[in-house]
Amino acid sequence: MSNSADPFDESTCPWSLADDVRLVRRVTEEAGRIALSYFARDIHTWDKSPNNPVSEADMAVDEFLRTTLMQNRTGYGWLSEETEDHSDRLRCGRLWIVDPIDGTRAFLAGGDDWGISVALVQDQKPVIAAFYAPVKNAFYFAETGRGATKNGLTIKVSDQNNLDAARMMGDPSAFKAKKLWPTPWPDSMHTEQANSIALRICQIADGQFDCCVTLRPKNDWDVAAADLIIAEAGGTLTTGTGKGLVFNRKRPLHDHIVASCPALVPSIMERVEPALAEWRHVAA
């Protein structure tokens, strides 16, 4: 369901998208440096909810992004994993959607599969996106209509069309659990996990992997930047029912995520759609 946000009037905005591009690049790189200053150190951590960790690093990056972006762009809205949500964002034509550290568990464990996610959403669609994985030295960036890059070089999704030979980003045990899938996944399909959902999607955008399926709900901040990056790289990102994602709704949540190069979408949906139907039946 759409919200009541007014269409954005660029003619009355003092900042162009080109201005916002420069700002997003600068603050995302600086946010990465701040995160690295806490990385692999003994820092304060706690659980926001059971099995949902957060740390002083998350909060420091969030504070930097919020302060810098909002002070430089008065009138823009704000939505972040680590900031209390306010309904006034629903009236904003332009909105920052941020995950200060996507993949906190990996960050705390000293892994490399985490990063900073920053998106500018206009009229409920991302128009500028950055995802920076500092330990991997991978800076992904996209602007609507201008393609996607990694460290300044153009990226595109793979042309894989055979699910048997596909490289799937996701929990290997989930795809091997045949009782969960009325139509099973090929045993020969390679599966590999990464803590950050945004990183998983970006690694499909640059062709390292071919697809990603998660039937666990994801929030706007998890996928807003990745949505534009994979789209500009020629891929697709939808819900498990094949619908495109709409951002800045009252409930900023997406029930499931399917990301893929285009040629694999039919084979993936042949497995996802009956699984969702079965799970809905069991739940009922």
Rank of each mutant, 00 (worst) to 15 (best):
residue 264 L to R: 00
residue 113 D to K: 05
residue 245 L to A: 06
residue 251 R to W: 13
residue 214 T to Y: 13
residue 277 A to E: 04
residue 128 I to R: 10
residue 169 M to G: 14
residue 52 N to L: 11
residue 199 L to W: 11
residue 82 E to L: 08
residue 190 H to E: 13
residue 240 G to C: 03
residue 131 F to D: 09
residue 76 Y to E: 04
residue 97 I to G: 14
residue 247 F to C: 12
residue 118 V to E: 14
residue 161 N to E: 01
residue 132 Y to H: 14
residue 69 L to W: 01
residue 95 L to G: 08
residue 155 I to S: 14
residue 207 G to C: 10
residue 107 F to G: 02
residue 9 D to T: 07
residue 104 T to N: 04
residue 226 A to I: 12
residue 163 L to K: 10
residue 137 N to L: 04
residue 62 D to L: 04
residue 173 S to Q: 10
residue 199 L to M: 15
residue 101 I to M: 06
residue 85 D to P: 12
residue 100 P to T: 00
residue 183 T to V: 09
residue 169 M to I: 15
residue 105 R to D: 00
residue 223 V to H: 00
residue 99 D to L: 09
residue 130 A to I: 01
residue 284 A to F: 07
residue 64 F to P: 04
residue 245 L to W: 04
residue 33 R to E: 11
residue 213 V to N: 05
residue 181 W to C: 07
residue 269 M to A: 05
residue 123 D to L: 01
residue 113 D to Q: 09
residue 25 R to P: 09
residue 265 V to F: 06
residue 272 V to L: 07
residue 83 T to S: 07
residue 222 D to M: 02
residue 69 L to M: 08
residue 123 D to K: 00
residue 77 G to V: 07
residue 72 N to H: 03
residue 258 V to G: 03
residue 110 G to V: 04
residue 228 L to M: 06
residue 232 E to Y: 01
residue 99 D to C: 07
residue 22 R to W: 03
residue 96 W to C: 15
residue 80 S to A: 10
residue 26 R to N: 07
residue 132 Y to M: 08
residue 47 D to R: 13
residue 203 Q to I: 05
residue 275 A to N: 03
residue 230 I to S: 10
residue 206 D to R: 10
residue 39 F to A: 09
residue 154 T to V: 02
residue 12 T to M: 13
residue 34 I to V: 12
residue 137 N to M: 06
residue 68 T to P: 07
residue 204 I to F: 09
residue 151 N to D: 10
residue 247 F to K: 15
residue 106 A to W: 01
residue 25 R to A: 15
residue 282 V to T: 12
residue 280 R to K: 12
residue 109 A to N: 07
residue 62 D to Q: 15
residue 78 W to G: 02
residue 268 I to V: 11
residue 263 A to S: 12
residue 263 A to M: 09
residue 181 W to E: 00
residue 279 W to M: 03
residue 57 A to D: 08
residue 243 K to S: 00
residue 126 P to V: 12
residue 64 F to G: 10
residue 248 N to I: 01
residue 79 L to V: 06
residue 183 T to G: 02
residue 140 Y to V: 09
residue 9 D to M: 01
residue 21 V to N: 10
residue 284 A to P: 06
residue 177 A to D: 10
residue 109 A to G: 07
residue 115 G to C: 11
residue 227 D to A: 12
residue 194 A to T: 15
residue 192 E to P: 11
residue 244 G to I: 05
residue 137 N to Q: 02
residue 205 A to H: 08
residue 9 D to V: 03
residue 231 A to E: 09
residue 2 S to L: 02
residue 123 D to Y: 00
residue 5 A to F: 03
residue 271 R to E: 13
residue 217 P to Y: 06
residue 60 A to P: 00
residue 248 N to L: 10
